[in-house]
């Protein structure tokens, strides 16, 4: 699955800090760092059918929680007792990118956090997906005119599913999870 970075957004901005941040992040290519990224390779190597690989990949997506601000509280509500995320495969909210599949970005991202977000995304193993949770990660939210934030996380990362709301109820995130699973199983046709 090829991923495109929105490269025309890395423009040179007015302040020196913006220039430094964006210059350091421009021009890095994504090389697949897992040997069997394509499903056909994986199924051939393991000796199982493609349907089995698809079933296992879709139904056990482990999230990496990146809860920064208010939406993190609703994210914890998504994982807690009333709306249980574990029944659909989203086990073990962990903070390490090496063992997770989905990155749930919840909260506004400031210019100081952009190198960290990018570095963590590049450390995730393929195949990997991103859900932008809440309005601040989608478009900047109510802080649109602030001098210190990024207007939407899709200026830095490729996003698969957007969830609107301020903050979205945990049921909304449940629906977004189901949409992501449908998107993955529809796209896997290797």
């Amino acid at each position: 699955m090829a991923e495109e970075y929105p490269e025309e957004e890395f423009k040179i901005a007015k302040k020196e800090m913006d220039r430094l941040v964006y210059e350091s992040l421009k021009g890095r290519e994504v090389k697949p760092n897992v040997m069997f990224a394509k499903m056909s390779d994986l199924s051939r190597a393991l000796g199982i059918s493609k349907g089995m690989v698809k079933w296992s990949r879709v139904n056990s997506l482990w999230p990496m929680q990146f809860g920064l601000a208010c939406c993190a509280i609703e994210l914890m509500g998504f994982g807690s007792a009333r709306i249980d995320a574990e029944r659909k495969g989203y086990l073990l909210f962990r903070s390490t990118p090496r063992q997770s599949d989905v990155m749930l970005v919840a909260g506004w991202v400031t210019k100081s956090m952009v190198p960290e977000v990018k570095r963590l995304y590049e450390q995730m193993t393929e195949p990997r997906y991103v859900i932008a949770f809440g309005e601040c990660a989608t478009c900047g939210g109510p802080w649109f005119e602030s001098y210190n934030i990024i207007r939407g996380i899709d200026q830095v990362l490729p996003v698969d599913v957007y969830v609107a709301g301020c903050p979205p109820k945990p049921e909304n995130l449940f629906e977004a999870m189901i949409k992501l699973q449908e998107k993955i199983s529809g796209k896997i046709e290797d």
């Binding site: 005119e145 210190n148 934030i149």
Partner: peptide, 13 residues
């Protein structure tokens, strides 16, 4: 400062 967005300045607008 990783979550600073200038609330006091934004309220002036």
């Amino acid at each position: 400062g990783y979550l600073h967005r200038g609330v006091e300045k934004l309220t002036e607008t």
